[in-house]
Nucleic acid binder design. Structure first.
Lengths: 197, 197
DNA sequence: GCAGTTGTTCACAAGTGCTTGAACAACTAG
DNA sequence: CTAGTTGTTCAAGCACTTGTGAACAACTGC
């Protein structure tokens, strides 16, 4: 009973415990990513690939996360479209690895998703303001506040300027590039605050 | 047939068209807000209150948006908890108005929601790193990359510094306050870039 | 060629979240 | 007091999302 545990056994136990804690990390990444409008599974797969020393096959990913191969297959294809994972070489059964530099993807999302959202609001506001001015000329007493619409319009324009700057912020490593970014960003920030009452 | 349309009739038509375009604005705000993890209905209600000249009762809001009173009731209570709408005075049937300055709410969301997400990931990473070091000492050959874990840990720490700065950015109206924010933000940005490979 | 493995596709089960209608409570005007 | 209006609550319906199992296709090593 007092005999020491064999080394390889305790090493195996430690590896098991580590695996369990890695899965907790992937869950945390999944929850975080879910809040940002993506699916939890995308964050979990990216994280497990990012933390694994060697590239992994889809079967290995499915086993590590405890999900079906079907889910891994479709999720990896979406991650590949966003350039967040990539096969290590050409061919059908190439193992996958995570792309660690996620900034290009964030930048793309801001460019497409956020820009379209703000642009839709901006166009709707422009259209409503135009109609409000026509109605006012016709002497209708309006329930809607054209001044507030114009304030929100300015807000969308300021948000678009801000997005443009963020998206252009590809690699502000150099101090002068950062200073230029900061100069323009502060200008936009002042514009944003002005639109509040 | 050549008689002119009566003025009050065309004015009424213009008011109807305006109402329709206002609803398009509220839909755009709803979609935007939905991408940020909130419900579309919250954005629509806030927008309709923000664009209406006078405060509105729940029934008016429900009619304007074409949804049930039940939905307006529960949604307005949640918006009130987040301080995005408020009753114009005390009492049960006080009409509601939108709070236009949304920055305090954004700040709160960053403080609670985002902070907790990053903190959960940070703790999971710390725990995994600890276990990886134990396992390495026991001579296990690990599939997981402790160096990558440490890089992600630094990323979470940098993200928390950045969040702290954003949350502290209450009202950077004064030029010197903004300069200080910019100084610290640029420092954090450099830290963020360093953690990438 | 053949057995075994890996990746893909799709119909469907399980779960979740949004919205409604109906019943009820609180208030207001006559 | 009564009738009508407004806000609240909740069970239920509905749509949507996530994840699975099974069948199939593509490839590998023998």
């Amino acid at each position: 009973m007092s005999r020491l545990v064999e080394p390889e056994v305790s090493a195996q136990r430690a590896a098991d415990r580590l695996h369990e804690r890695v899965i907790r990390v992937t869950d945390a990444v999944g929850e975080f990513i879910e809040w940002w409008g993506f699916k939890s599974i995308h964050g979990r797969i990216w994280a497990v690939l990012a933390l694994h020393k060697a590239p992994m096959s889809q079967v290995e990913v499915a086993r590590a996360l405890g999900v079906s191969r079907a889910l891994v297959s479709s999720s990896i294809r979406e991650l590949e479209e966003w350039r967040l994972v990539r096969p290590t070489h050409d061919g059908r059964n190439a193992p996958w690895e995570a792309v660690i530099d996620v900034w290009p993807t964030i930048s793309d999302v801001l460019r497409s998703r956020e820009w379209m959202m703000v642009e839709a609001a901006r166009l709707a506001l422009e259209s409503a303001i135009e109609e409000a001015e026509i109605a006012e000329e016709l002497g209708a007493d309006l329930a809607w506040d054209a001044g507030r619409m114009r304030a929100l319009l300015r807000l969308t324009e300021a948000a678009q300027s801000f997005l443009k700057i963020l998206v252009g912020l590809r690699a502000p490593r150099a101090a002068d590039g950062l200073a230029e970014w900061v100069r323009r960003a502060s200008h936009v920030f002042r514009g944003l605050r002005r639109t509040e009452r």
